[in-house]
């Protein structure tokens, strides 16, 4: 009883902090928070595959990119395209792409899955790079209008950083909640079982290929929506910004550093990467050198990331307490 009340209070306090935060930290850090939220949800969607289904995707940029391009293209070419339409078209385009690649990807696991996603990702990258009449190539698409939120009685201008922060928080928060919910459902437990032992799952009457395809489609669609938010935020979509391998690698690193074994690990990891960036960029231009070294250390010594480390520390403390008693 009181536990539930406590939880509600915690949630309320959290919500209030989220609402007040942009007014306290200023515009620059509000924008940093928005990029953090995008990275975090991107990392969560990658972890839906990696941590929960045991599939390593090296090509998630394709979903991110197609969502971003769909948003930028429709905003450029359609007069008065509404904000809800942007989210919708990002989701649909990524969903379609996922439906095309899923039948092929669902057949494979392990290294082959990673390679095939990488191949698809690169294929989309070079197509967008070369067909510059449509995509603008390296220069990309820029300068489209960002539509306001229609609230019936008033319009909210999301080119204002604080308003954009609220908008991003709602959209990305809903996506995160959806994924959190998903892993708690029966389908979520199937995902985990596929990660642990796909052959056994098949003998328990589940269709592993269908389930894997479905996870991929869900994860891809979520990533596509994040891509749409990215397009709205940066007002610039280019191949280098949304489709290169690093676009796939960065959230992957975040997910791994945070810890792929827990749902919230990737959020934590995305946050850590931002903190590292903030700290190291004061001393050196080579921020990614530090990130890469940390990533290597995590892969080698902390396979469950920061969250896993925290678990081990807790277990160790608990043990030593027991011994004292």
């Amino acid at each position: 009883m009181s536990g539930k009340l406590k939880l509600t209070i915690y949630w309320l306090i959290g919500l209030i902090i989220v609402i007040i935060l942009p007014h306290v930290i200023g515009i620059v850090y509000t924008n940093v928070l928005v990029t953090f939220m995008m990275d975090a949800v991107f990392a969560l969607s990658i972890n839906l595959l990696l941590g929960f289904t045991g599939l390593l995707s090296f090509g998630h940029a394709m979903f991110f990119g197609i969502g971003a391009y769909a948003a930028a293209l429709s905003l450029t070419h359609i007069q008065g395209f509404p904000l809800i339409g942007v989210i919708f078209i990002s989701a649909i385009s990524a969903l379609l792409l996922a439906c095309i690649v899923a039948p092929l990807l669902a057949r494979v696991t392990g290294t082959a899955f990673a390679m095939l996603t990488l191949a698809f990702g690169q294929l989309l990258y070079v197509i967008c790079l070369k067909f510059r009449e449509i995509t603008g190539g390296e220069d990309g698409i820029a300068g489209y209008d960002t539509p306001p939120i229609h609230l019936g009685f008033t319009n909210v201008d999301i080119t204002d950083p604080t308003n954009f922060y609220y908008f991003a928080f709602v959209v990305l928060g809903l996506l995160a909640f959806f994924m959190w919910w998903l892993v708690k459902t029966p389908f979520g437990s199937v995902m985990i079982s596929i990660r642990d032992n796909a052959q056994r799952v098949e003998y328990l009457g589940y269709r592993v290929k269908h389930s894997k395809a479905l996870v991929l489609i869900i994860s891809g669609t979520v990533t596509g929506i994040v891509g749409g938010v990215y397009a709205l935020f940066h007002n610039l979509v280019s191949t280098d910004g949304v489709l290169t391998i690093f676009v796939s690698f960065y959230p992957l690193m975040g997910a791994y550093i945070g810890g792929i074994a827990s749902f919230f690990g990737p959020i934590f990891g995305a946050g850590l990467l931002h903190v590292f960036d903030e700290l190291t960029s004061r001393y050196t231009e080579r921020v990614d050198l530090v990130n890469g070294l940390i990533f290597i250390l995590v892969v080698m010594y902390a396979p469950y990331g920061a969250v896993g480390l925290w678990w081990s520390i807790k277990a160790w403390l608990f043990k030593s307490k027991l011994q004292k008693a």
Partner: peptide, 15 residues
């Protein structure tokens, strides 16, 4: 779950 045919349910918490 599988015997009961609950294989793609995404709207209930399994617990």
């Amino acid at each position: 779950l599988s015997r009961r045919g609950i294989r793609f349910n995404m709207w209930r918490r399994v617990d």
